[in-house]
Design a protein around this nucleic acid. Structure first.
Lengths: 235, 235
DNA sequence: AAGATCAGAATTGTATACGAAATCTGCAAT
DNA sequence: ATTGCAGATTTCGTATACAATTCTGATCTT
């Protein structure tokens, strides 16, 4: 008999997220290479990633769980296309949850964490200067999940992860770049507050940062959303 | 017949949740027929639900994503066993999110919603009187997700769903019944506040209700038991 | 007798094939 | 031009095969 002391410690996300299809598509969405609504045929993904349908289907299922992909029976998968109402909800949820993760991050951050955040922010600037908007967007999202990680709340981290992912789709649909760009400074002020161990300030900064993004969304043209007739007629 | 006021009706979860394995195991966990740590062998589930390994694996993946099941490579699946730290986190998250859903529910509830909640609460009492703790537990959880549904925030509903599910495991591990039972009155006072359209009161009641449950948890010991899977899954 | 070792059994991970059902596409007919 | 239909395509569920890993129990060593 083995020494089974009953404690399984940190069992390394073995859900379905270590899947080439999941990782590849997720990343492509984060970097705005895959616009909302793109069809994702199984055979195509098999070729692209050199795996069997077994793996492709598992990946698509995982993506569906994170709400990055919409799976319709017998009609296959496509990149999710959040409605304005979805977008509203996602940012309301972020405004509820992330101020808390920022607060907790300010309480728990180690010097190594701070350094990671700063390096991160620098990368973000570099990508922005290089006009590499895909990369800068992904890094900007990663910044938020990184704060959630530092907060030490794995449960909230999972939620933030999903919300940030969906935000990439929302931004692709409803963001117009010509609007204000406070991001860079916002992120740095947040790092300062976290580094200084000021939970209240971090919380407030995060909240207003999210509100800024939220209010900069523009729902007037719902993108060239060619919603198929089925969706419009059946309900 | 649909009595839905033209809002998007829940677009039929076409993720992986309409899966006999997912539904059966989820329900068994909610009703405390499947204790934390129970091994879930693929072949066994194939027999029990009369489906192929494809479906079983899809169901297990979905369950893993909702953190009800732990999947270890090459070693299979078992019902998740939240640590005391996990339990702490889950309830902290609930205390953050559910006061908000209660507040929004108080703002959006229709008479039909109120009636549903009251009928629900009555069922819960009936199950409790009949000493059917499995059923009463499931209904108690459903009450919380129902409030989240009424709030109209599908995103938060998803989170609450997951948190309530995990709470079933946490209660199975760390709850001792001899402790206080405020639930019944708590739920009814909540319904009253929602019916009266008092967001602040609903929010406060929900928060204190959750804190009550949270503080009634006891992390000193975590029992372990092994029974026959078939008995637990086929009621 | 206690513990280590190792071969066989059991289980999981992945690939592939097949039939059924649904969907999509293009052509023909009205 | 629209409708109707047949064939091609795609997805879905299942079954099967096989490699890789883990588990189990019997044997061997000390």
């Amino acid at each position: 008999m083995k020494h089974d002391m009953g404690f399984d410690e940190a069992p390394d996300r073995h859900d379905g997220r270590a899947n080439p299809v999941f990782l590849g598509v997720e990343r492509a969405i984060h970097e705005h290479r895959l616009p909302p609504g793109t069809r994702l045929a199984e055979a195509e993904l098999c070729e692209i990633y050199g795996v069997s349908r077994t793996i492709v289907r598992a990946g698509l299922q995982a993506l569906t769980h994170s709400q990055l992909v919409t799976l319709v029976p017998n009609r296959g998968a496509s990149v999710a296309k959040p409605t304005p109402a979805d977008a509203q909800e996602v940012f309301e949820a972020r405004e509820l949850i992330e101020p808390r993760t920022a607060r907790e991050a300010a309480r728990h951050a180690t010097p190594a964490d701070i350094e990671l955040l700063r390096r991160h922010s620098a990368e973000e600037h570099k990508a922005l200067d290089a006009r590499d908007y895909g990369r800068s967007l992904r890094l900007s999202g990663l910044f938020h999940t990184e704060i959630a990680r530092i907060s030490g709340q794995k449960t909230l981290l999972g939620f933030v992860d999903q919300l940030v992912s969906r935000s990439a789709l929302i931004i692709a649909l409803y963001w117009h770049r010509e609007r204000a760009r406070c991001d860079s400074q916002c992120h740095e002020r947040l790092i300062d507050a976290i580094a200084a161990g000021k939970p209240d300030e971090a919380e407030t900064l995060m909240r207003s940062h999210l509100v800024d993004i939220h209010t900069a969304l523009d729902f007037r043209d719902a993108g060239d959303s060619q919603r198929d007739l089925r969706d419009m007629l059946l309900p």
